[in-house]
């Protein structure tokens, strides 16, 4: 699985949401997933995922959030890839 990474920690709103949504367009089922590094829970994006047929996994490491976005059917593959 190919991992796309975006770091939105230093951006003012609504750039982080726009960047994440824009990048999600490049995700292909079975082939890739998106990894966003952000300073807070990106609730605006998370609440759009279900209608896009997508899912997410989020973990907090220190001050940063790592959010992984993928198609629902790829959940197991992505979690294995990121060692969860």
């Amino acid at each position: 699985m190919k991992e796309f990474v975006i770091d939105t920690r230093e951006f003012d709103p609504p750039a982080p949401m726009q960047m994440a949504i824009s990048e999600l367009q490049n995700i292909i089922p079975g082939e890739s997933f998106l990894h966003q590094i952000h300073r807070m829970e990106p609730t605006g994006v998370i609440n759009r995922l279900s209608s896009m047929g997508m899912d997410f996994y989020m973990k907090r490491e220190g001050d940063d959030y790592h959010i992984y976005y993928f198609y629902k059917e790829d959940r197991d593959k992505v979690l294995k890839e990121i060692d969860v």
Binding site: P14, M17, Q18, I21, L24, Q25, I27, P29, G44, N47, R48, S51, M52, G53, M54
Partner: peptide
């Protein structure tokens, strides 16, 4: 499949 991108949720 990817189903929506709109920012008009508000």
């Amino acid at each position: 499949m990817f189903k929506g991108l709109s920012l008009d949720q508000a």
